[in-house]
């Protein structure tokens, strides 16, 4: 597992993938932060973190697309699948490397918050001009990390289904979009039963509490479960492919 993780991290930084991911992710994040806080003279980061989900929806699939598709296309998966490691270890190694890239991105991204503190007006009485709430930022960072983690698991699962990277990225964005839209439009549905069922699938609605600075344990467990389920499904994909 460690070997795969190390190889993946190395591959991100010896090829262009890692740099492209980091630069695009940081650029988009910076633009969103600038538009939602500095430009409107507000230090409230709630809107910023909500929009980050859409940024993730576009950039995380780029990170996960080649995890397994590329291995399958170039047949290198044969090395991994005949090595003395379990399929679970293989999937976890891949997952950890993507997750680590996400953490690197979020860590660098913290620089973006500095202006919010330096430009804050401590004398003003308006809430939006005060320095941002540090606890809220940390809570939100944890939350986007959790959401990103579940997006990565979904992306890895889809990557394990196809040998075409492009298909993987498009399908992943599509699936994540559906997940997000379910959350947004769920409120409009009258029928309680359908609403509850769709509520289980709604990645977005769990997240809203975090933007109000409430740390939601239910949501934490929810995102962990989504991650677990999709990683488990990826393992099953490899187990069942043996039979074809």
């Amino acid at each position: 597992m460690i070997a795969i993780f190390k190889r993946e991290m190395r591959a991100y930084f010896t090829t262009s993938t890692g740099y492209i991911f980091l630069s695009v992710a940081l650029a988009l994040s910076g633009i969103v932060l600038g538009l939602t806080t500095l430009l409107v003279k507000s230090s409230d980061t709630g809107m910023y973190f909500s929009l980050m989900l859409f940024v993730f929806m576009i950039i995380l699939p780029v990170l996960t697309m080649k995890t397994f598709s590329e291995e399958r296309r170039t047949k290198t998966e044969q090395l991994l699948l005949t090595a003395p490691i379990s399929t679970t270890q293989m999937v976890l190694g891949k997952f950890l490397s993507c997750f680590c890239m996400l953490l690197i991105m979020l860590a660098i991204n913290c620089i973006n918050f500095i202006p919010l503190f330096t430009y804050a007006d401590t004398t003003s009485s308006a809430v939006t001009s005060m320095p941002p709430n540090v606890a809220m930022i940390i809570g939100n960072l944890l939350a986007v990390m959790l959401v990103g983690m579940s997006f990565i698991a979904i992306g890895i699962f889809i990557s394990s289904l196809t040998e075409n990277q492009f298909a993987a990225v498009v399908i992943t964005i599509g699936v994540l979009l559906v997940f997000l839209l379910i959350g947004i439009f769920n409120g409009m549905i009258e029928n309680n039963v359908i609403r509850t069922i769709l509520g289980w699938l709604s990645i977005y609605s769990r997240y809203t509490n975090f933007t109000y600075a409430v740390f939601d344990i239910d949501a934490l467990i929810y995102y962990m479960s989504i991650t677990g389920v999709f990683l488990f499904l990826s393992v099953r994909v490899f187990e069942s492919r043996k039979y074809n």
Partner: peptide
Amino acid sequence: IGFLPEQPPLYIDM
């Protein structure tokens, strides 16, 4: 077991 498949599983960027 050490296995060499029909198409060697090489990571060409290493």
